[in-house]
Design a binder for these strands. Structure first.
Lengths: 363, 363
DNA sequence: CTGAAAGCGCTTACAG
DNA sequence: CTGAAAGCGCTTACAG
C-alpha cells in the first residue's frame, strides 16, 4: 500500500517521460525516476549507486539494471568532459609501459580526437587488478565518459563493474583475442607480417628470419603467421631455426640477432616483431662492425616516431596508432547515444614505410 | 535589518568556521558561507557564479573576490580529481610536440605522482592562444585542480584568467626565462653542459664541438654556456666554428655534423643539444661509414627513454624528467593548501649517464 | 538589482 | 533490508 502511494506521488512529481529513453541522445535520468520505475524509494537507489551493502541482492540487481539501461550519470548537470586512457602495464610486453614510445602516438591520437569533441583525456597506468578497481572508483566518482583501454582486455568482473557504472569501453590493440562482448580497435597484424616479409622477398632475399613476441601475445602470433604466409607464397622454406621468439624489447632483438648471426647459414634479412626489436638488431650489427642494409636488411613493426631516428632510418610496417586511438574514441561516443551499442572489432590497415634499413642482399 | 537577520541565520546554519580557511588543507566553502561573509543572499552569489548579468558590478566584484579567496569549487562535494598537463605546441622546438619522446617521461612522472594522490592527469595540447582560452573554459567547467604547463610560460593575460578561476599553475622546463610571478621546475642546464663537456675533456678530447638550439631557447643557452665554461676550465680554446646552432631535431644534428666533419680540422667529440640531435650525429656518421665512439664521441642531452636504443647506446646528460613532473605536481598541491603560495623556481640536478657513444679519441 | 521561497537531486542517520 | 524525514548545496521564477 505504501509502495503504491509512493509510486503515485513520484509519478506525479516526475515530468511525463517514457520509462526508458530508447535511442534518444542525452537524457538525464534522476534517482527519483529510477526509484519510481523500480518501485523502491530514492534512498534505496542512492544506496545502490554508492555501493552501500545494506541492500538486498535482488533489489540491487534490479536497480543496477535500470541504472544501466537509463545510462544514469551522477551529477547529471554537465558532463565531466573526461575520457580515460588506461594503460595496462600488467600484461604488456615491456614492464614500464610508458617508456615505450609506442604509447606516445596513441595518446596523441586520443588527445586530438578528444579535443575536437571538447573532451580531455585522462591518462592512468594500471599495473594490477587492485589498481584497476581503484581506478574504477576514482573514475566513476568524477564521472568519466568512457575508457580507452590499451592492450588490456577487461575480464568479466571488470566489465561488469564498468557497465554497472555505465562506463563504455573500447579496447585498443587487445593483447588477447577479443571476445564477442567487447568492442576493440586493432590493426591488420597478419597483413603487416605479410607485407614486411614480401618486401624482403621482392628485394631478392631468400633466407629471411622473423622475430616474434613471447608467449601468446595476440598481435605477435598474427604477424608471425603473415611472415609464414609470405614465405609460402614465394615458395621459400620456413626454417624453424629462423624464427625466434623473444621479449618485445631492444635486448630481445639483440639476443635473437646474435643467435641468427652465429648460424652456419645466417639470414640476409630479418623481420622484427616491433621497432624496439629492430633497434636491437641494429645494435647487434654495429657491435660486430656490420651495417644495415649492406650486411643485413631489417624491417621493424609499429613505425614508432623514433623509427626515423635510427641509423639507418628504419624500414618498418606502420601501425596507424593515432588513427586507431581516434577511432576508438569515436566508438566510445556512439555508444553513449545508442542504447545498446553492438559489440564489434575494427581493424585499421597497416602499410609499409620504406626507409633505409632494407636493400637487396649483398653477395 | 533584513541583511542582519540574514547574516545571523546563516551564521547559525554554518558550521563554526573562521572566515578565510588560511593554511588549512582542503576546506570546501559553500555558497551559503560566502553569502554570509559578503552580506548578501545565496541567490546573488549563485548569480555571480553563473555569470548572470543582473548583479551590481560592485557586488559582483566583492563576491568574485571572496569566491577566489576561498578557492571556491563548483560541485564542492568531491574535488574533480583532475590535474591538467598542458603541452604548449606553439613555441617548442619540434612542431609536433607529442612526437617527441621527451614528453613521455614527463607524462609518466606526472601520472605516477598524481596517482599516489588519487588524482588523474588530463593531457591537452595547445597550439595557439585561442586554443589556450578554450582549454581554460573547458578546464574550469570541469573544475581542474591545477595546471602543469610544459615549456609554455603563460603570459600576463593567461595568468590572470587562471588565477581568476582559482587554478594554480606550475611551469615545467620553461622555454623562456621565468618571471618572478610564476612557479616553475627546471634542471641545471648549465651544469649539464659543463659535465657533458668535461666528460669528453677527461677522455682526452681537445677539439670538442657543441650543438645548440635555435634562437633564444632558454635551456639551450645555459647548456652552451656550460660547454664554454668547461672548455675554459680545461684551458681549451673555443673555436666559434665548433659551435653550431640548429633545430632540436635529428636532422638538425645531422646537418651540423656534416658541417663539422667537412672542416679542415674536425672535432673528435660533439656535445649535442639534446638526444634527437645526438641521434642525428650518429646518422651522419653512419652515412660516411664512420662509427661512434671509434671515429667520434657524442654526448646527448635529456636521456630520453630511447637513448639506450641507439647503436651504440648513447652517453647522455640525464634530465630527471619524471622527477621534474612529480615535483611540479607537488608544488601544485601545496599551493592549494596555502593561501598565498610564494612564487619560486626549483632546479633538479642533471647527471651524466655514460653508455657507449663516448671513448678516448682514436689517433 | 536583490532576496525569500519553492524546488531539485542527492545523501544520510535513524526508526522499523 | 527498507524508506520517511531532515537536510545540504545549489538554481530559478518571481515579487519588490
Amino acid at each position: 500500500v505504501d509502495v503504491a502511494r509512493n509510486l503515485a506521488r513520484d509519478a506525479a512529481t516526475r515530468h511525463p517521460v517514457p520509462p526508458v529513453p530508447a535511442g534518444a541522445s542525452v537524457r538525464a535520468s534522476t534517482l527519483t525516476g529510477i526509484a519510481a520505475e523500480a518501485g523502491v524509494s530514492v534512498s534505496t537507489v542512492s544506496k545502490v549507486l554508492n555501493g552501500r551493502t545494506d541492500v538486498a541482492p535482488r533489489t540491487r540487481d534490479r536497480i543496477g539494471e535500470l541504472l544501466r539501461r537509463h545510462g544514469y550519470q551522477p551529477d547529471s548537470g554537465q558532463p565531466s568532459g573526461i575520457v580515460d586512457l588506461l594503460l595496462g602495464i600488467g600484461e604488456c610486453p615491456s614492464p614500464t609501459f610508458l617508456h615505450n614510445p609506442w604509447a606516445d602516438e596513441l595518446l596523441r591520437g586520443a588527445v586530438e580526437a578528444a579535443s575536437e569533441a571538447q573532451r580531455s583525456v585522462a591518462v592512468t597506468t594500471v599495473a594490477s587488478p587492485k589498481e584497476f578497481d581503484q581506478w574504477v572508483e576514482l573514475a566513476t566518482a568524477r564521472g568519466t565518459e568512457g575508457v580507452l583501454s590499451v592492450l588490456h582486455l577487461p575480464d568479466g568482473g571488470e566489465l561488469e563493474r564498468l557497465s554497472a557504472a555505465g562506463i563504455p569501453v573500447v579496447v585498443i590493440d587487445p593483447a588477447e583475442e577479443p571476445g564477442p562482448g567487447i568492442r576493440s580497435v586493432g590493426t591488420t597484424n597478419w597483413q603487416g607480417g605479410l607485407i614486411a616479409t614480401r618486401h624482403l622477398v621482392e628485394l631478392g632475399h631468400r633466407r629471411i628470419a622473423a622475430i616474434g613476441g613471447e608467449g601468446a601475445v595476440w598481435s605477435s602470433r598474427a604477424r608471425l603467421d603473415g611472415y609464414r604466409a609470405a614465405m609460402l607464397d614465394a615458395g621459400l622454406p620456413v626454417d624453424p631455426g629462423l624464427v625466434g621468439r623473444d621479449s618485445f624489447t631492444v635486448s630481445g632483438g639483440r639476443r635473437q640477432t646474435e643467435r641468427l648471426l652465429s648460424m652456419a647459414d645466417p639470414p640476409t634479412g630479418i623481420v622484427a616483431g616491433n621497432d624496439a626489436q629492430a633497434f636491437g638488431v641494429l645494435q647487434a650489427l654495429a657491435e660486430r662492425g656490420l651495417r644495415a642494409p649492406h650486411d643485413l636488411s631489417v624491417v621493424g613493426f609499429d613505425d614508432v616516431p623514433v623509427a626515423s631516428w635510427a641509423a639507418p632510418p628504419l624500414t618498418t610496417v606502420r601501425q596507424p596508432l593515432a588513427a586507431m586511438a581516434a577511432t576508438a574514441f569515436r566508438m566510445l561516443q556512439v555508444s553513449r547515444s545508442t542504447t545498446a551499442a553492438e559489440a564489434h572489432h575494427v581493424e585499421l590497415a597497416t602499410n609499409l614505410v620504406v626507409r633505409e634499413s632494407t636493400a637487396p642482399p649483398a653477395r
